[in-house]
Amino acid sequence: MTNHLIHSVESEARNPKRLRFGIVLLPNFTLTAFSGFVDLLRLASDEGDMSRPVRCSWTIVGENLVPVRASCGIQITPWSTFGEAEEFDYVVIVGGLLHSGPSASGATLAFIRAMADTPATLVGVCTGAFALVRAGVMSGYRVCVSWFHYWDFVERFPHVDEHEIVADRLFVIDRRRITCSGGRASIDVAAAILLRHVEATIVRKALRILLVDDAQKGNAPQPHPPGLEPATHPKVRRAILLMEQHIGQPLSLPDLASRLEVSVRQLERLFTTETGRSPGAYARQIRLRMASWLLTSSDRTVADIASSCGFSDASHLGREFRKEFGESPNEYRTTRLPDAHDLSPVLPEVH
């Protein structure tokens, strides 16, 4: 028996079953979600820095071999078509932008339905979960979506039982369906999948190489915006999201109420009940939190930060900032950023 053949036999003995992943990229998919998932597969699949598909393999499949454009503009060409696809243990659908260009094609939905009839587990990453629902393969399963896309999901799929929609967790594993909120959580869900089949030490090592301390469990909460708790009334949740999306040009209370299809009085009553504050006070705190973050994470001037956060000028921000934090913006920056005096340009003190 040749050395090559001996090596192959020994390798198969050590790795009796290689996990097979088929990855479908939807138009305008999120590159972070895709790369995080596949990079953990790559690192956990082999020893050293070889990146060979030893413990698991991955194939990018598509309707045809036309490159698929990510939301950032990068294009990736499928390796094989749906008709050429082999058998998979996991079929991963990676989504992204919802309001830019076409969504999953009829052929893609048909492929998803065909895979649902096999022993494969279907995985929806980011808005890939939307495609699973559109394909009709999520009936009776819980589905995880990002808090940011919660209302998009509800509007597109009003027939889905609200108790089956999970928007406050990183991912959900429900038998042969796995859905993930996207972003960094794609690494976490890849780790959870691998831990079913691969030694924990191998997965932990792959996570460390990616500079991830440890994988989050599926019941770990999504990083909601500051002050936005999962249990908040749906109308209040949506109002807070609108406030965050219009920090630079704050919506008036009548505009906010109109978008939510409630009266101003009803909105004020809901906010007081849920948060103990009026909508105006809550919006002001969101803008001040954003300003405080910019002060310690950038070298932008106070005047620039004031404009970005919806304040009329630096003096206006300074007055509101003192009420909230008990110090001026520059004092806040200096006490939390020791090297702030080295920033250029020099920032004028605001009183």
Rank of each mutant, 00 (worst) to 15 (best):
I74T: 09
F21A: 03
P329V: 03
P158H: 07
T275E: 10
A110I: 08
L241A: 11
R176M: 01
G83N: 08
F171C: 02
N3P: 06
K217R: 12
P27G: 07
V137M: 06
G140D: 08
G227E: 04
L122D: 00
T179Q: 09
A185S: 15
S252E: 12
L288Y: 01
F88H: 00
G48S: 07
S307M: 11
S11R: 14
S328P: 02
A314N: 01
L26G: 05
L43V: 04
G106E: 07
A33I: 05
S45E: 02
G48K: 07
A220W: 01
L170M: 13
G48M: 05
A231L: 09
V212L: 08
S80W: 02
F111W: 06
H316P: 04
E84V: 03
H224V: 09
V160T: 13
H233G: 08
G248P: 06
C144P: 00
P254R: 10
E155S: 15
S100Q: 10
C126F: 03
T301N: 13
G96P: 00
N3A: 13
C144R: 04
I74N: 07
S315I: 13
A13T: 14
W58F: 10
S278I: 04
S139A: 15
T118P: 00
D313P: 01
L122T: 00
S100R: 11
G280S: 15
Y332T: 03
L317I: 00
G248L: 11
Q216F: 12
F171E: 00
L26V: 04
T232E: 14
L25C: 06
R300G: 03
Q249H: 11
L211I: 13
E349I: 05
D46A: 13
R196W: 05
G36Q: 04
A129D: 01
F321N: 01
L294F: 11
I76D: 03
P338G: 13
F111E: 00
T201M: 14
R204N: 14
T335D: 15
C144N: 10
P254I: 10
G218H: 06
H197W: 04
P225W: 12
E63T: 08
C309A: 09
G101I: 03
E86P: 01
V212H: 07
E349W: 05
E87S: 09
A239K: 09
T108V: 15
D174G: 06
S8Y: 06
D299A: 14
G95K: 04
